[in-house]
Design a protein around this nucleic acid. Structure first.
Lengths: 217, 217, 217, 217
DNA sequence: TATGAATGAGCCTTCATTCAT
DNA sequence: AATGAATGAAGGCTCATTCAT
């Protein structure tokens, strides 16, 4: 969570104040962008949310596009941090896969800002992401976790063979992503409350069943 | 497809011109909204795309929100029309399910405006959709097709039992939706071109495998 | 009330239809202008109130300014018609003056469109009125009635001498005009309802008292 | 006159610049609204008159309605300030009444913006005034001055008894208000120049005569 | 004759960004 | 270092007026 500490050199009081301001700005940007989208977001609103002067916001971040990019990297990084905490090595492949699938679904349900910003970034054809220098923040440990689980599962004979980890990754995410991201239009069509606990748990179980059902040898 | 035909009476030349203008406006709105999102879209741009005076646009549709709603209903209706064309009765459950899954994936790939608008409508928490009077346009025949296929498949013993059609519906859509909608951010992460024919076909096959793999008894 | 009939020649059916349309338009204009002022009035609204096509409105009246002038002449003429009905000759000077004063007050209370339009015409420095050809419509019989009453009253010794009829005319109107025209701001200041019957009657009596009190020899 | 002084602390340079800008805007608003009415006034014109950026105008005042309200309060307050300067205590009731009547007439003649704005506010049924928080600005010392003069005049036997101060207030104002506000339409009707010095002085004297004539015991 | 469609200018308001202190 | 003021360019929407049938 803490901003990556520079190796060995302590931050001066001023530097740390600036860093804190930067954090507040980016947090505010995430909130505003997630709620309004890029075009709908207001720089003024971000400054206000951050409790900072608009001029400083420009001094620190540059402009609206840069704000967006910083916010986008933030939501990716936040998810990556959570993913890192997953420790599936000591679980059986089936149990590990269950945990992984549940984790993704829950994360998406609990972090609408992640879905929101990804959707808008795709609306912009991912142009900002392509220009990002911090691509490392995008990297997800999930793919390797999946690969490892698939290998172990295959070896133990509990998973089918020749499953492409990346395709499975996309599927695991997609099964929850669509439900979460489109819960409002789905609600209008099916006339249900997809945010109720019952519906959420039902969906979570269904996704687990579906992935594991597919992976059966 | 056909505009609601008034009983027996043909439309006057004027009426048909008006209808044509309305269509052009809505088409233009779909294009602009899909490309820019609601907040990013410009009414001027829609008028220009439609080749119509801005004043007339307001006379026909009312305001930006109404334009959005009309465009949203349009993309829903367009998909519904295509869905209606599916004739799965004469196919085996497995073949039918394959066709249905492929259809959805391809539709989403070929109609980014559908994904775009749904995403933005969800950003707005589906408020416009909830206010829509033409809810009938939202209704999708897919759910019944899925139910029917599941029943037949169960009866024939080729599908597992007790699969919830709505959950399966959400899954079938979600598996393709995420890939299509998020192809640009996925491209940035995996450094691939997810619009290339090979990748698209690979994904399509994977989705079919996944759904059918899950449905195995 | 009927439009002045052309001497001796009967109107054709078409002419009378046109005349009726013109009347409807002007009536509608009076209503709209009185409610919204010149700048606030909408030509569309006038056409709609008149139940006539906007194009015809322009054909008959010309443009917004001409509509205003026609409406202005109409409200002046309407008041003049009512004034003509006053028959004060057979009354005593005091009684006649009372009637005249009461008439004016009541007319203003009952015809807010008259006040409204005069106010706005004065906002425009009376430019339209100065360009009017139908100045005859502006002519008020009141001045002569007042002169006559003053003369008789002086002769009978019931009125003071050397009262300027025009000044008295302006006073008689002014005492009621301000109360009527400014009833809303007065209401805000004095926190009373100046449209209630009691207040209206009180004011009417006060004006009569004031004029006659002044006229005492 | 003095802006509300904050206890003991002088205004900073910045605060006083802001206050000055606000004043300029409101002055400009008064001028524009008085000349064009609410609907006819252009916010652009106000900004230009004030020599300020349109955006700042909105930052300071909010919107057109708020501009109107501020301008309206300003013209009321300006008149109240002048009224406060009247010192009638040391004059005889008759002299005091003369001064008061003349003051009102002259004020209206010299401040057409006051009449203009009141007229338009009444066109709007006084809605803005009713929503005003600064109602105190509306309060006029005139009523008490009149009451006091009436009491003293009655006691001294120079004024008639039982005159309602509020009715007299309305009359004093009305006698001049109508002449001033409607001078242009009156000019068209009587074909005179009611702004000439002679006419103005004649009217002023007439009003004095009328009020005092009425007040005779 | 009579009608709805069309238009260009303009209005109120807001935005991302930069100045000046 | 930090702040509020300032700006020009738009954005949504409306209006009086004219066209085309």
């Amino acid at each position: 969570m803490m901003p990556e500490t520079r190796s060995a050199t302590a931050l001066t009081a001023q530097e740390s104040r600036q860093a804190a301001a930067r954090e507040r700005i980016i947090d505010a940007a995430v909130a505003e962008f997630a709620a309004q989208g890029f075009a709908g977001a207001r720089v003024d609103a971000i400054a206000e949310r951050a409790g900072i002067n608009k001029r400083m916001l420009y001094a620190y971040l540059g402009n609206k596009k840069a704000l967006w990019l910083a916010a986008l990297e933030r939501v990716y990084a936040a998810k990556r941090e959570e993913e890192r905490r997953l420790d599936l090595q000591r679980l059986s492949p089936v149990e590990g896969m269950q945990i992984l699938v549940r984790f993704n679904f829950r994360y998406h349900m609990e972090h609408p800002e992640f879905l929101s910003m990804l959707n808008d970034e795709n609306l912009q054809h991912g142009l900002n992401l392509h220009g990002s220098k911090n691509v490392v923040a995008l990297y997800s440990p999930l793919l390797e976790l999946i690969s490892s689980l698939l290998e172990r599962g295959e070896a133990e004979g509990v998973f089918r063979r020749n499953v492409d980890p990346m395709q499975l990754y996309i599927s695991i995410i997609g099964l929850g992503y669509f439900y979460c991201s489109n819960r409002y239009t789905l609600a209008a069509i099916f006339n249900r409350d997809f945010e109720s606990i019952e519906e959420v748990l039902t969906r979570e179980q269904h996704i687990v069943d579906e992935i594991l059902g597919f992976l059966r040898p």
